[in-house]
Amino acid sequence: MNIAQYPEIIDNRYQSGIPREHSYRTDPENLIRHLFPIIDVTNEPANITDCGNPDYVLTKWKIPIGYIESKDVGKDLNSKTYKEQFTLYRNALDNLIITDYLWFQFFQNGKMVHEIKIAEIENDKIIPNPENFEQFENLIKDFCSFIGQTIKSAKMAERPQRPGIKI
């Protein structure tokens, strides 16, 4: 699947009238795998963080490089409903995307660095924003290239280092 097909696939599910948040889960996973085959995308990962479990973890060579938390299509990502959860994730995860599958907010080190809508809902139909596709691909590329702190545990940070070994 390429970026131009993605909104159409989301719209096909949306138009059925029966999907919920989890119904769309494979779509961003497939898109990221198509754009960046060396990235492994795990949907519903096991306990990988101390702050809860975002919906996806992206890894490169088994090292986590980013996390994605998704909400249902059309949900307001700035809603007070999600504030506590999103704040927890932003404070704990160096590289995070929060999305409703159409609107993507990119966070690094707790701060929003970009947001972009690749489609919008108009008259109960998902309308692509093709003028944003290239920028979105570049943002995902940057997200997948992020090199951050891989150890967040206080125990690991306090552990004395042996000479010649870096943690």
Rank of each mutant, 00 (worst) to 15 (best):
M1V: 10
N2L: 14
I3P: 11
Y6V: 04
P7F: 09
E8N: 13
N12S: 14
R13D: 13
Q15A: 13
P19Q: 11
E21P: 13
E21N: 08
H22R: 13
S23C: 10
R25P: 03
N30Q: 15
I32K: 11
R33N: 15
F36R: 11
P37A: 04
I39D: 05
I48W: 15
T49R: 11
C51K: 06
G52D: 06
P54G: 12
L58W: 02
L58C: 02
L58S: 02
I63S: 07
I65P: 05
G66Q: 02
G66C: 03
K71W: 03
D76R: 06
L77F: 06
K80N: 10
K83A: 12
E84Y: 12
Q85L: 03
T87Y: 09
Y89K: 10
Y89V: 07
R90I: 08
A92Y: 09
D94M: 04
I98Y: 02
D100C: 00
Y101N: 02
M112Q: 14
E115K: 08
E115P: 01
I118N: 01
A119G: 08
I121S: 04
N123K: 10
K125M: 07
N129L: 03
N132H: 13
F133V: 01
F133T: 01
E134Q: 07
F136P: 05
F136G: 01
E137G: 05
N138C: 05
L139A: 01
I140E: 05
K141M: 06
S145L: 12
T150R: 13
K155E: 14
M156Y: 13
M156Q: 08
Q161L: 05
P163E: 07
P163N: 08
I165C: 00
I165G: 00
K166S: 06
